[in-house]
């Protein structure tokens, strides 16, 4: 496992399709940036493929194949946007060795994140959260998760805080340090109620992170709600 990767069971849950969308997004984005986790996910997806082979086949209806064959002809234009790609389904790079990567001029928003936030993070309607921190929320309230991009000004600190549920922070741009270590793009920090920390963005540039706060239903009563406002970063 990469040092700042999500726990392995989360990668298993990703491969099996058992994560809620916010966490699936975090894992997919992380794995797109981190080769080791990408290979781990590919392996875990292969386990899924092997498992599929062990299932006793279910009987298809009569004419199932014909019905599919019939649909081919009218829709054979390709590119149906079926969302069926996976970590293994991308357009393969030509197997030529040594050619320079051609897609480098991309602005660097990882592909899985782009459908949610576009390809220019700096153009987003950031909301100042006071001091040096701004946020852009999306997928709001999905399954009790809180999903957002956080931007910490270069060299600035996030107020010291602890967490109600589990907080997953994936560095997209720049980087930060806290008591647990230094985090580079692609790195994931996991912090829960046992962790109090004060992330500090590196001095050279703003740090942009994808943060998913996993605080499902444990918000008990109005007091919890109020506390939560202060607790989350």
């Amino acid at each position: 496992m990469a040092p700042h990767a999500p726990p392995e069971e989360m990668l298993v849950d990703y491969a099996a399709g058992n994560l809620a969308e916010p966490l699936a997004l975090l894992v997919a984005t992380h794995a797109s940036l981190n080769r080791e986790s990408r290979r781990e996910v590919q392996l875990l997806e292969s386990v899924g493929g092997a498992m599929l082979e062990t299932l006793p086949p279910a009987e298809m209806s009569d004419g199932a194949l014909d019905s599919v064959l019939a649909q081919m002809d009218d829709t054979d234009a390709g590119g149906d946007g079926d969302g069926a790609s996976s970590s293994m389904v991308g357009e393969a790079a030509p197997p030529s060795g040594g050619s320079a990567p051609t897609q480098v001029q991309n602005d660097g928003v990882p592909a899985p994140l782009r459908p949610y936030v576009g390809s220019d993070l700096h153009a987003l309607p950031w909301r100042e959260r006071g001091g040096s921190v701004a946020e852009y929320r999306f997928l709001d309230g999905r399954n009790g998760y809180r999903t957002r991009l956080m931007r910490i000004r270069a060299g600035c600190k996030v107020p010291s805080h602890t967490h109600r549920g589990c907080e997953y922070t994936l560095v997209i741009e720049g980087g930060f340090s806290d008591t647990q270590g230094d985090y580079f793009p692609g790195d994931v920090a996991v912090a829960d109620a046992d962790v109090t920390h004060q992330p500090v963005a590196w001095p050279d540039r703003d740090c942009i992170c994808l943060t998913v706060l996993d605080a499902p239903v444990r918000m008990t009563g109005p007091m919890g709600r109020i506390l939560n406002l202060f607790v989350d970063f």
Binding site: S32, S46, G48, S86, S87, M88, A93, N106, P110, P112
Partner: peptide, 29 residues
Amino acid sequence: TWIFTIARNKRVDALRRERWPNVDPDDPS
């Protein structure tokens, strides 16, 4: 494996009505 991932994505889409974010196998960054 390839077909498993397609089936998995369809399942999430149809049974959970969520989008499944895929890993980019060769992300430029």
